[in-house]
Simulated scan of single mutants.
Amino acid sequence: MSHAVRRASELVLDETTVTAIRAALRTTADEVVQAIIDEVPSYANALSGRMGATIRRAVRTALSLYLDLASGKATGGDASAAAYELGRGEVRDGRSMDALLSAYRVGARVAWRGLAAGAVPAGLPAAQVAKFAELTFAYIDELSAASAAGHADELAARGRAHERHLEQLARDLLSGASPEVLLAGAGRAGWQPPVSLTAVLLPAAHARPAYRALDPGTLVLDDLPDASGVLLVPDADRAHLLRQLPDRAAVVGPARPWTRASASYARAVRARSLSCDIRDTEDHLPELVLSADADALADLRARALAPLRTLPAATARRLEETLRAWLLHQGRRDEVAAALFVHPQTVRYRMSQLRELFPDLGSPHRVLELTLAVGLRVG
């Protein structure tokens, strides 16, 4: 049983008093609406025309139900349901809960003035007037609470819907959906497309905490396969982003035009599969290029280094290391020797062996193949 209904059980107005109050309340709805317009800025232009007429009818209905409650004819439930819907509607009209509560306070004051104007001349005893006042404000408090609940529920529902739209947009971006689909999704989510997006791959449990420190336009998912999460960061300053991500497990992909965010995500995924030590994919482009087709790299190594396979394993390994150093240091013997921790004469001897094995070692095409084959150990 509500507080207002309990109060009503202590006070049942007779029909004569109710009739007198109804007569006094004929203009009260208009007075309530006008007072709200005058005293609550958010409603200054909102209660004119059809909207004003709707609110006047709602006030009249609430007052009529209230008098039914006071005379023992109703429970006030219908009014509470209407107040709940009013609270939801205020969210749709863009007004805050503070504005609505202010309107209730103004309305309560004006409504009581009208109620008292009918009750006192009707001869209601002072003790009953006091109970009548308690019932009036208990009733209005319950309507106010119902509206507050409707307002909060609508905000929560909108928040959940907004979150779902943002998550769907993120999924569409990762899947490489068409620009038309992405623009429609951004519109539904109320998300302003940036110039670029940068994907950040990290453990799912770390996604939300990291997201809270980033640009509010960042999109986040924390339910990807392999317990992974992803952030899609708009127009990121790369150096600043890396500083904002102390998590060493985070992998930052390249910035890409926002409709091509899937390319940034794909590179981050591949970098993580390549090595757990990669954090910034921009620092590991050679490894990523060579790992793009592991089978092709294996075939290239087998073909390019075939002459070494005719040698004992230990010898082949030493010559491959020498060849790698020679290529990476562009044939500078002293630097090659320093890199291998051997004497320059040893480098000279080994390079003589390599030139016998690779007669076309000076060919640009051969140098390219061998550089790719031995320059990086991946795959």
Rank of each mutant, 00 (worst) to 15 (best):
A227D: 14
P254S: 15
A255L: 05
L242W: 00
L219G: 11
Y211F: 14
L224H: 05
P246T: 03
P254Y: 01
D215K: 03
R260E: 15
S228K: 08
P254L: 14
A239S: 11
D226P: 00
A249S: 11
L242G: 00
A255D: 15
Y211P: 01
L232I: 07
R248H: 06
L241P: 07
Q244I: 01
V252R: 08
D223I: 02
Y211A: 10
L232C: 09
L214H: 07
D222S: 13
W258D: 05
P234Q: 11
S262H: 15
A227R: 11
A239R: 08
T218H: 13
D215F: 01
R238Y: 10
G217T: 00
D247F: 01
S228L: 15
R243I: 02
W258K: 10
V252L: 03
T259K: 01
V252D: 07
A261V: 08
L219T: 06
P257C: 13
A250F: 08
G253F: 04
A210G: 07
T259A: 10
A255W: 04
V230W: 02
L219F: 04
D215R: 08
A236M: 07
W258N: 08
P257G: 13
A250M: 05
T259H: 08
R248F: 00
A227M: 00
D247C: 03
L214F: 10
L245V: 09
D237H: 10
A261I: 06
D226E: 14
T218S: 15
P257L: 12
L232F: 11
P257H: 12
V251P: 05
A250G: 10
P257W: 12
S228D: 11
H240D: 14
V233I: 11
D237K: 09
P234L: 09
H240C: 02
P257N: 13
V251D: 03
L242Y: 00
P225G: 11
G253H: 13
R260N: 15
H240L: 13
A236K: 05
A255Y: 04
A227Y: 01
V220T: 07
A210N: 03
A213F: 03
R248Q: 06
L241W: 01
Y211V: 04
P234V: 04
L214A: 09
D223T: 10
G217C: 05
P209M: 02
L221P: 09
V251Y: 00
L224R: 13
